[in-house]
Design a protein around this nucleic acid. Sequence first.
DNA 1: TATGAATGAGCCTTCATTCAT
DNA 2: GATGAATGAAGGCTCATTCAT
Lengths: 189, 189, 189, 189
Amino acid sequence: MGRKQAFTKSELLDQTKKVLLEHGYEGFQLKLLSRGLAGARSTIYQYYANKEEIVAACMKRVMENVLHKVSAIDDSDCMNALQQLLTVYMEEANFHQLLGYAHKINKANSAAAAHDLEFIEQAHVTLKQQLERLFVRAQEEGHLNTSIPLPAIIGVFFNLIDTPNMMNIPIPQWSKLLYQIWLGGAGRL
Amino acid sequence: MGRKQAFTKSELLDQTKKVLLEHGYEGFQLKLLSRGLAGARSTIYQYYANKEEIVAACMKRVMENVLHKVSAIDDSDCMNALQQLLTVYMEEANFHQLLGYAHKINKANSAAAAHDLEFIEQAHVTLKQQLERLFVRAQEEGHLNTSIPLPAIIGVFFNLIDTPNMMNIPIPQWSKLLYQIWLGGAGRL
Amino acid sequence: MGRKQAFTKSELLDQTKKVLLEHGYEGFQLKLLSRGLAGARSTIYQYYANKEEIVAACMKRVMENVLHKVSAIDDSDCMNALQQLLTVYMEEANFHQLLGYAHKINKANSAAAAHDLEFIEQAHVTLKQQLERLFVRAQEEGHLNTSIPLPAIIGVFFNLIDTPNMMNIPIPQWSKLLYQIWLGGAGRL
Amino acid sequence: MGRKQAFTKSELLDQTKKVLLEHGYEGFQLKLLSRGLAGARSTIYQYYANKEEIVAACMKRVMENVLHKVSAIDDSDCMNALQQLLTVYMEEANFHQLLGYAHKINKANSAAAAHDLEFIEQAHVTLKQQLERLFVRAQEEGHLNTSIPLPAIIGVFFNLIDTPNMMNIPIPQWSKLLYQIWLGGAGRL
DNA sequence: TATGAATGAGCCTTCATTCAT
DNA sequence: GATGAATGAAGGCTCATTCAT
């Protein structure tokens, strides 16, 4: 009964992510959102009660994707696991950047948004711990240069994600290449 | 003689940079700008005709600083020059990030802004060429691993700039450390 | 036979009255209306073409009730008739208040609403005349203090209806009590 | 310095009261407010941060007026004091009605509004106590009919305020007339 | 010149009403 | 007939920009 939906919740969140990455959190406007959807601006309110909830839901979904992919990684070999982790983060484009917006969301406006953010925060902590454990193992197993402080190693590793892929190399290979640079350096062997 | 000067152009641009980095381009508001300035919001229009011009002027100034510092680098030893370049970019905090906002500025609104952006664009190209020349030299002189495509090496190098400095190591040392990781890798030698 | 009846016209008007008294005319919203009804908001339009018609119909029904009850009053004894009138108006809770909203309804929007309002207006006039005749008779029969202008006496009498019943005395007794105060005053005899 | 104000805070509150009485709380719109002012709608925000604050401030001012006038009443003779109280409430037109809107204001939206409402609430309690004391004294001094419950007497007294003044009798006389009806009744002596 | 005040354009959100199943 | 979904027209509020002192 009733009409058929102009767009699905999933389409809405897809577009949300797109607009968010293109215009940043402060530049996120419902006008831009609806522009990329097959329906009017006010229709958005069928799904979410306000702007904040939309953004929070979008972030939550991205986080869930990442958690899902990460949980599928075999971490028996820690170096291999790191390589795969890097790939996952790269595939889940701009996961990193999106998370940076999380703290800007005004929780006071919406309980639902606050709840989603809580989830994201929790997951974030979990991911970090998992990652740190991998790095510690890598160090203990003698794969890393012990003269470099671990936080620096981790920071550089993470930052690889945002390296601009000028040559448009497919993500799996691009990820492998960056991993090699990170581990072996850019200098002559 | 009139009234006393409320704030100088330079103070205005300092504050512009601060607000820009804190709130992003889309979150840049004149209210935030004047809040950190010793004068009224409307006084800003004594210096610039609109928002776009302010941001463009700010970026231009940052670019000029970078150009100035870069031009002082001795590039007889290309590897040393690269190391120094990295330091300069890091010192000129968030130069990279600011430049990312450049393409968001609406040039249609102001000829002055368009002019400044033109300058920035030009300088950007120049810097890139200079950098590339250094990298080519580095490769020719056998400092780099030839099995890695140069664009990837450059991309990673540049991305180092944004690596979060969790341990708050002073910039010159932090720069040196990142340079080492980049060149030698994070793995065991 | 189609679908089952979601709610009757009468239920709709009951709920209309409730919402109207709770939120006032300007606060009357279809969302609040359907919330207390066993059916969807859009179903309301099966009965009435727009908001104005609903409110007008509600008022008309209340007025009809009052007319009905009033016509049953035996007015051979005018003082007794007045007492009974007061009771009727009080039973027909907030009749008075509802009528106050009548002039706010935008007739331009709906012929049906305009028609109902016409009826209400007419009935209102009739009731007033009837009442006035009763008061005139009461005065002529010497029941009222002739040193007080009749309009003042009538005004006070009518206003009794809205006296807050803090002690929750049952309406018939409450009505009788107010009638006594009105007639005999609050002062020592 | 700067331009001269389009309207004063006081004018704003005057108009607020007018619109509030004409359209009720739910019908109170900034458009209606600015329509009666010599300035644009957005100018209102120079004085108050939102709708709620405006309404709360308006009510507070009315309450302050009432408190001021009430405090000037000589209550050595309680019956005389009651008569004067009635006049005050009538002069401060629709004070009663306005107060009825107080509980509809959404305090969550504004600390300033909540603060004003706190004041109003407090003053309301004080006024009520003062009034009750007067009535108790009146009863003890034997001015009132002891066979009528005091709350009913008080309720009727208060309700007099809203009696429609059809003949447009000047307020002091109108008040006196109502007081007489209340005390002595409308019936033949 | 410096600025306090004014303001219109634009954004978020709500709501009566219409559509299409 | 009943309804879930769609939507444009407003209303509250903010902000860049202009005015007038």
